[in-house]
Design a protein around this nucleic acid. Structure first.
Length: 588
RNA sequence: CGGGGUGUAGCUUAGCCUGGUAGAGCGCCUGGUUUGGGACCAGGAGGUCGCAGGUUCGAAUCCUGUCGCCCCGACCA
């Protein structure tokens, strides 16, 4: 039981100028956090309590899902990462630490880095400690502060440089076991988000820099989210935009026969799809081939799309390059023979085909059949280009960005799009890390095998804010029962009356015994201030003790989610409150 | 890192264009009146106008640089 006057809940009437979204404003106004610097926040007592609620529930669900808690350092020797598979890709976001005057002369490489996640730490650990199939499977987790030097911190805790994350790593003897571990974690996540009152949905996701074979993101739908979720509720299809596909190309599509011999025609100054669509050329975008050039680990490669489609860059990850970026005009011309705007992939038109790492085409270009593309000659295009006959394609794949309204891949229903906040991510990693660190075990036939890994993360601090974003009204936060810093607020309007405070303590004890955390507002403030603050900090259940009520022999009970106030005789309040607490706990 | 914006009291801000004693609201302190949805009256404390240069008789205001913060883009829990 905490007494407000002795506690520390600095609420604000006005929102800080740097807060843009509702949850960020409320975090500050309700006295949960204060900013130290960009992406760096102090958790005030109330904010810390919520964090502790979330971590404890997360811990319980992870343990129920078979994971074992441990704790790893967050200062990592840089060598640990240099030996790992993603140093090149991850070093940008890592804080570097150098012990002063170490004299090691490592001008370019840091001595230590602060951990953004822990695959590079746990995999060598498990390689050293686990060598037998008898000790598998194992799944380890920790709940700890993570460090990422976000280029652009945003929205309070939503994207911070230092944040709290639960990260878990599973090790299995075989693929079936790894899938089982993955599904156990998926269930644990679902339980966690359900218990804390967050409406999070699992969507198929891109594996990104983590690598691995498949993955789900847990998204809290919210307008302020950073990600687009492509979904259709009837078919149950849901995927991150980076991963989403559609059934645009019918499986039985027959490739169009050539419409004629390739014809070159002059297009002086025409370097965009839109310009070629206009008169006098009048070539619809969906009758054009778009040719993009990227650099993959230093070698250029081509991506061919329909003129009307956009590249979904994340899908290029499937090609397996470690480092990838758009090519510059200077890099393109010597290889293709023309500047961007006149590029194409027609056999024989490419100046130096041997320099290319490949030509990758989106399936959807088969819908074009015969189209127009650049001639690899500035100011010229080619028409009657046939996909099968003329394009030098290495491999077809899914590279285009889906659009709302396209048929979903499960049922053909139109796809929809909405924004979401990514609060959790699970990956089936496979052997990417175990291979790199040679994490092997011996089976019962004395054979060595690579362990199959999975990794799992929940952004606890981000989840805290996502819950607020999802659960607030004009007056303040509306905490779900188990996420709330306190479940019961006893609001004493006349704390100078000894009998009022006596009753408040009795009620508080009863609520605590029923399993609630109790805050007593005993401040010498006017009732209006107390009610406003109560709504702002969003405690689910409020008990009001007023001078008038005391005379009438009643107190008031009000849920934060409801408008009505229930008057209860003082003699019954302890019992009724205890029942309400027990019931709310049972439902949560 | 590219583009845009902004920095004035603990918080929210006016003043800047057009240079001339730095203002308000909230919060805080004192006293009084109030007391069921952010009370009122009276008095009071609190500001190197982000920092450093420059222009000027004179700079919060104009110029240059620099730092912080916010927004848009690429990345992520």
């Amino acid at each position: 039981m905490k007494f407000w006057s002795q506690y520390f809940i600095p609420t604000l009437k006005e929102s800080p100028a740097d807060a843009e979204i509702a949850s960020h404003k409320l975090l500050v106004r309700a006295g949960l956090v204060r900013k130290l610097g960009g992406g760096l926040y102090t958790y005030l007592p109330l904010g810390l309590r919520v964090m502790q609620k979330l971590t404890q529930i997360c811990r319980e669900e992870m343990e129920r899902g078979g994971a074992i808690e441990l704790w790893m350092p967050h200062v990592h020797p840089a060598e640990q990462w240099e030996q790992g598979p993603r140093w090149a890709a991850a070093r940008e976001i890592m804080f570097r630490v150098d012990s002063a005057g170490s004299g090691k002369g490592r001008a370019k490489e840091p001595e230590y880095v602060l951990g953004p996640t822990h695959e590079e730490v746990i995999t060598p650990l498990i390689k050293a400690e686990i060598t037998s199939y008898r000790d598998l499977p194992k799944n380890f987790f920790q709940i700890a502060t993570k460090f990422r030097n976000e280029i652009r911190p945003r929205y309070g805790l939503m994207r911070a440089k230092e944040f709290v994350m639960m990260d878990a790593y599973s090790f299995d003897a075989d693929d079936a076991g790894a899938t089982k571990s993955y599904l156990a974690m998926k269930a644990a996540y679902e339980n966690f988000f359900r218990r804390i009152g967050a409406q999070a949905i699992a969507v198929e996701a891109d594996t990104g820099v983590m690598g691995g074979s498949f993955s789900h993101e847990f998204m809290v739908p919210a307008e302020v989210g950073d990600d687009d979720v492509i979904y259709n509720e009837e078919s149950d299809y849901a995927a991150n935009r980076e991963k989403a596909t559609s059934a645009l190309v019918p499986p039985d599509l027959k490739d169009a026969p050539p419409s004629g011999a390739i014809e070159e025609f002059a297009t002086p100054g025409i370097v965009t799809i839109a310009a070629l669509e206009a008169v006098p050329y009048s070539v619809p975008a969906d009758q054009q081939f778009k040719t993009l050039v990227y650099m993959g680990d230093g070698k250029p490669f081509l991506v061919i799309l329909r003129g009307c489609d956009e590249l979904e860059e994340a899908k290029l990850g499937a090609l397996g390059f470690t480092l990838r970026r758009p090519a510059t005009a200077e890099e393109i011309e010597p290889v293709l023979g023309a500047k961007p705007g006149s590029l194409g992939a027609v056999k024989g038109s490419i100046k130096n085909p041997a320099a290319l790492a490949g030509i990758f085409a989106d399936h959807a270009i088969r819908l074009v059949g015969n189209g127009t593309t650049g001639a690899n000659k500035d100011g010229f295009h080619l028409r009657h280009v046939n996909v099968v006959r003329d394009l030098a394609i290495t491999q077809f794949g899914d590279f285009r960005r889906v659009r709302p309204g396209e048929p979903d891949p499960k049922s053909g229903q139109p796809l929809k799009v909405r924004r979401g906040i990514e609060v959790g991510h699970i990956f089936k990693l496979g052997t990417k890390y175990s291979e790199k660190y040679n994490a092997v075990y011996t089976d019962d036939q004395k054979q060595s095998h690579l362990m199959i890994m999975g990794c799992y993360g929940i952004g606890i601090s981000r989840t805290l804010q996502a819950v607020i974003e999802q659960s607030h009204d004009a007056d303040g936060i509306v905490w779900p029962w188990l996420a709330a810093p306190f479940q019961v607020l006893v609001c004493v309007l006349d704390p100078q009356l000894p009998e009022a405070m006596e009753l408040a303590k009795k009620i508080g004890v009863a609520a605590e015994q029923a399993g609630a955390d109790v805050l007593i507002d005993d401040r010498a403030e006017r009732p209006g201030v107390k009610f406003k603050d109560a709504d702002l900090i969003g405690i689910p259940l409020r008990v009001t003790i007023g001078g008038k009520g005391l005379k009438e022999g009643i107190v008031e009970l009000k849920w934060r989610t409801k408008k009505e106030v229930v008057k209860i005789p003082i003699a019954e309040v302890e019992k009724q409150l205890a029942e309400a607490v027990v019931q709310a706990s049972a439902q949560a």
